Simulated assay, not measured.
Amino acid sequence: MTIEINLLPWREQRRERHSKRFHLALVAMAVVGLAGGAGMTLYYQHALDIQQQRNAHITDQSARLDRDIRSIREYEAQIERLEAQIAVFQRLQEGRPQTVHVFNQLAESLEEGVHYTQLTRQGELLSLTGLAENNRQVSDQLRALGAAPAFAVPNLSEVESDQGQDRRRFSLNVPQRMPGQPLAEEDES
């Protein structure tokens, strides 16, 4: 007696079970792969959105900072202009007493018989034109200007006789001496 075992239907069922499991595993892996890919895509998209928000915030802050820098530069330029104006006002304010002092010294040093006809000032140099009755009065006037504390050594540029009158017309330049400036500067020139 021989026993015949038919394994084919069993093998066939087993093969179908393995095929189903394989196909299920394949589908499950495909689903897991797609889900993982979609998850990674969402994660990277979310990270990209956050980075774009950061970039937009940085760009906005950078633009705001640029505006602030521009306004600060405008304020600094305005401050420089105001400081320059203040310096001019201070120089003018400081020069007021000096101008009065110069005129007082000119009046005090004026010798008898001498008249000034023109006075011009260029920087710290005064140019005087005047009339005197004789050459001695012109010399006395030069000495008086040289002795005045507001002036340095005067420089006589010309003396000529006034036509038709018995007078001398003279021109001279005298540098102003700043208050507190030593007299030694006169000896050097």
Rank of each mutant, 00 (worst) to 15 (best):
Q13C: 09
Q13E: 14
R14V: 12
R14F: 15
R15E: 13
R15M: 05
E16I: 00
E16D: 12
R17Q: 12
R17H: 08
H18F: 10
H18C: 04
S19R: 08
K20G: 04
F22E: 04
F22Q: 05
H23S: 06
H23L: 07
H23R: 07
H23P: 00
H23D: 03
A25Q: 03
A25P: 00
A25H: 04
A25F: 02
A25Y: 00
L26Q: 02
V27T: 09
V27Y: 04
A28F: 01
A28R: 00
A28W: 00
M29D: 06
M29S: 14
M29G: 14
A30C: 11
A30N: 10
V31Q: 05
V32F: 08
V32S: 10
L34V: 15
L34C: 10
L34Y: 05
L34Q: 03
L34W: 08
G36S: 11
G36V: 06
G37W: 11
G37K: 04
G37S: 09
A38W: 13
A38N: 11
A38F: 15
A38V: 13
G39C: 06
G39V: 06
G39N: 06
G39F: 09
G39S: 13
G39H: 05
M40L: 14
T41C: 10
T41N: 14
T41H: 14
L42F: 14
Y43F: 14
Y43C: 05
Y43D: 08
Y44G: 06
Y44Q: 10
Q45T: 15
Q45P: 01
H46I: 11
H46L: 14
H46P: 01
H46R: 09
H46S: 09
A47V: 12
A47I: 12
L48Q: 13
L48Y: 15
L48I: 05
L48W: 14
D49H: 07
D49A: 11
D49G: 05
